[in-house]
Amino acid sequence: MTSTVLFYLLQFLILASALGVVLIPNPIYCALMLAVSMIGISALFFSLEAYFVAGVQLIVYAGAVMVLFVMVIMLFNLKNEVVAFSKGLLSKVLKVSLSVLIFALIASSLSMSFADLNSSQLQPYESAMRSVKELSALLFTKYIFAFEAISILLILVVVGAVSLARAKGGTHASDK
């Protein structure tokens, strides 16, 4: 019963802060709301007994990515931002209804597909340490090529991001 209450509490927290990210005009508050949402998702992972993933979620998202966002926001002078949302009443109505429609489509198809998997049939993991061990074994055996590809991608991204941000004239170097 406590896990049910916890789930609904976390769900409310995550969805409310996610809506905050989308609807608040000031980007620094958006970043704050995003951090709250990430922490809520991490707590959800904890309640699903995925401890290591929850920790990585906290470190990578609530730590590193959020610092990146906040640093870039502070780099810009965002006082003079006037237009936060796209213009036009018709396009706004269209976009809202499109999002709601896609959510309704996914939710209704889900309720027909996976209705038989309940938490009462959940098999408990033996221990948290064992799941971490299994995870690392999988990462370095079955998914080793994906792991190496990710490392190459990260190196490329580091070099690319630095050269992009340092280039004189930004993305329009040949324009001047």
Binding site: L15, A18, V21, V22, F85, S86, S99, I102, F103
Partner: peptide, 11 residues
């Protein structure tokens, strides 16, 4: 869907 809404809505 909330994220998608943000992508298509914000400037």
């Amino acid at each position: 869907c909330i994220g998608m809404f943000g992508v298509i809505m914000r400037k």
